[in-house]
Design a protein around this nucleic acid. Structure first.
Lengths: 338, 338
DNA sequence: ATGAAAGCGCTAACAT
DNA sequence: ATGTTAGCGCTTTCAT
């Protein structure tokens, strides 16, 4: 058995209450007994048991991190990076992160994650879109909640989001500053908030520059923004519009697809067409040419969510604020001045 | 306050002991009281408190995952993938993973991770090399230990390792089967076990094929196996040896460096030189040509380590076994028959 | 300033 | 087959 508070009390000839007060930094204890107790603690190498503390304090020192299983298992490690950001930030504190995934087909019959039912978390970070049913169940618990990369409908909790509008603005402005006017936007499902916001940034940038919006070179009908759909979107746009000089793709995967299409069809990048993506995935550097893009700091998203969670646990307040994590323009070789 | 065992006992008109026995599946309880209790549990939506259980059972249901901070923060997400593999596997069980990092400059004055001192884990997975000082401190605790991607000197615990020798064999055999005889090996620090084993696989394959070993086309002096060192190694080898037709690089990063060197110097891949790497990083597919390699299932490593950890907690035995996780030959376009 | 004692929610002897 | 009760290792009134 490990050393307990009793052992310390016995050896220091005080009560366990006194030891407890000492380790909790209470100053109702005289300096000399304090010294005495501290000395014994050191001698015995005593460390309070977390289990015992958890039980009596009705806290756990754990924060849950919840996402759907398909988000967890996605090839592009987006949500796992966010998770790692939270883990990293937690490492600087006295909290641990507990991970749980829920089926994306969650419904009212599914049970809640174990850490909710067993009360082993003090707060919960929800990453990415999760089923509405889950959300409403969750809200029945008086548990601090923070959302990251997803803003639920009836939002009354803190939310951490990518500054997608600004990212779209940065990307498009970069192209405009390089002299481009015929700038295509290649996106996925427009009903997805991130993509909608990136498009908003795009239109805003054109507006600011007095370039008029041409809906023929806007593609927003792909269901999922992956490489293949990027390829197909490029085909459908470039076959009908010959004078495009630049493309802003809503993410790097699509941008890569666009690059493939252009190469396959004799376009040179960036000489004939400049292209910029969004995300800054690892692969960008290895592309030929390396892809200019908007860097999304996934790790920071998670870290930020964790910080806010910690705050709201400690302040007992659940104010609904929105934190926008800034993105960054990364200029590489796929864009050029004309 | 949440529903407790008392509430259930009261409403079911039994003692808390009975309730406890029921929820723990003890069969000394008559079917009818059992039904009665179960019914009340459902009505009240009762779930036992983990904190209370932890305290009384002297278990925590948590498994620690430990690595050095630089391993955690490495750009190539090697150890974090292993971590995620453990996390994933844990998701199928009743365990949670608690992550902690230690400074790689750890010494005897540093304190142990909090979860050790506070006794909040039932077992510990150690990933990658950690300081010896830490290991000896750790072994003082009677805590099940499992190592992954690192085999400590005085090993008396289960170890999960990549089958590097077999990987080296697979890679080299592939080249040999494609008709190559002048096969360079480009590696990093040979004192690193993984690299040493990959080289062993290489020499063994040459041996088997009756090809004689030429130490002039073996490079094992780079301190760190990254892209730049791959480039430099290729330079030093190819300037002196003109007849090399294939390269086995000890990892993909170096392989990429080698590819860059070869392209910069007018070699065509795979027409002039075939090249195979090791790891199977995301970027391989985007290279031109896509890189043949040996796939290292990082995720599986973590999952395997977790399973073994769970086993050894439940069986109370700490036998020192070595589990070799199989690797896989991935043939893409950077190697060709001659 | 310190101690006694109750209690957090559960489990497991031990009784009955 | 079920109940009583004593802890698990702490924190926290309430006394002194």
């Amino acid at each position: 058995m490990a050393v307990t508070i009793k052992d310390v009390a016995l050896k220091a000839k005080v009560s366990t209450a006194t030891v407890s007060l000492v380790i909790n930094g209470n100053n109702r204890i005289s300096p000399e007994t304090k010294r005495k107790v501290l000395k014994v603690i050191k001698e015995l190498d005593y460390h309070p048991s977390k289990s015992a503390r958890d039980l009596v304090s009705q806290k756990t020192g754990n924060i849950g991190f919840l996402l759907t299983d398909d988000h967890f298992l996605r090839t592009e490690p987006f949500y796992t990076r966010i998770f790692l950001g939270s883990e990293f930030e937690a490492g600087n504190t006295n909290y641990y992160i507990l991970l749980a995934t829920v089926p994306s087909t969650y419904n009212n019959n599914n049970s809640l994650p174990r850490f909710i039912l067993e009360r082993s978390i003090d707060g919960l970070i929800v990453a990415g879109k999760v089923p509405e049913e889950l959300l409403s169940k969750l809200s029945e618990y008086k548990l601090p909640l923070t959302f990251v990369d997803y803003k639920p409908e009836r939002q009354k909790y803190p939310v951490v989001l990518i500054d997608n509008i600004h990212g779209g603005l940065l990307a498009t402005n970069h192209l405009i500053e390089y002299g481009h006017k015929k700038i295509a936007f290649i996106g996925g499902d427009i009903s997805h908030p991130s993509i909608r916001d990136r498009l908003t940034g795009y239109t805003r940038a054109l507006d600011n520059a007095g370039i008029n919006f041409n809906k023929n070179i806007i593609h927003t009908i792909s269901p999922y923004p992956d490489r293949q759909n990027g390829y197909d979107a490029a085909k459908s746009i470039f076959t009908k519009n010959k004078n495009i000089t630049a493309v802003f793709a809503c993410n790097d995967a699509m941008a890569i697809g666009v690059m493939h299409y252009l190469k396959d069809n004799g376009y040179s990048i960036p000489d004939d067409v400049s292209i910029i993506g969004f995300d800054d995935v690892e692969a960008d550097l290895l592309l030929d040419p390396p892809l200019s893009t908007i860097r999304v700091p996934k790790f920071d998203l998670g870290a930020e969510a964790f910080k806010i969670m910690k705050e709201s646990i400690q302040n007992k307040e659940t104010k609904s604020k929105i934190v926008l994590v800034p993105v960054e323009l990364i200029i590489r070789k796929s864009t050029r001045k004309i």
